[in-house]
Amino acid sequence: MARNRKILRRFSWVVMASLLLTGCSTQIPVLQPQGPVAQQEFGLIEWSFFLMLIVAIVVFILFGVFIYRYRNTPNNKAPYEPDMEGSRKLEFIWTLIPVVIVLLIAVPTVRTTYALQAPPSTAKTDPLVINVTSAAWKWVFQYPKSGLETVNYLVIPANEPVQFNLTSVGPMNTFWIPSLGGMEFNMPNVTLGLWLQADHPGIYLGRSANFSGVGFEHMSFTVKALSIPQFNTWVSAVKKTAPALSSAENNQILYTHGLSPKLTFSSYPSTTATGTAGMSGM
């Protein structure tokens, strides 16, 4: 059973891949998960795609056969029953089959929804927490444990679940790193959590997926996953070499509308980001 399912899944993957143009196959991050969260989501994508494909194939075949066989030509010998009103039996069948398919999709959906909400089983009791604030139009990443802050780029340790706390000081955005997993909203006055993990060191692309104004397109950021020793080295290097972030600079980053290059700070002011919403720098 499990083996069959695996074969079927592989089949659906082949179909999906064959739909794609050649040469692009290395650049479909959603279909090439680089971490356990993206992996679980990809599993559901494959499974639901495969089941839907079966339905589509059945419909397409019936569709093709019927319009050919029952076309209105003088010599068509196929039966013609203009007063046929329906069939309880057939209608029961095609009510029941979608019910079964919905169940087959709903059960893993609910299970994964709950699984992804909870901290992963591999999470440390004291996981790396990163506070992610979207401003117009930049990403601010604060590392509370080490007290450092980066703008428009993110560095994380590989092979370790990282907890992101998402909020916004302006319009809503979403925090999306498709290689590592799905997105979650950054909303003002609210903090939402998201767990992500990179399986390997590497560089991934992140982006906001929710329109937030004229600079929205530029709300992308790079995610560098480093091995744990390299990550620790990076943290101490930042603490030593990067400047501290003053309160005035902090306000400018958060409340002045504009773009920003990548920035690095060894510390950030202790005021909370969302408490000063009135300070729009319009």
């Binding site: 959603v30 639901s48 795609f49 959906t109 994964t112 992804l116 498709p178 997993g181 799905g182 997926a209």
Partner: peptide
């Protein structure tokens, strides 16, 4: 239906 799969929608949303 694929979009209705909530965890998968985290990858499709607004894309």
């Amino acid at each position: 239906v694929m979009l209705a799969v909530a965890p998968a929608d985290y990858q499709y949303h607004n894309s």
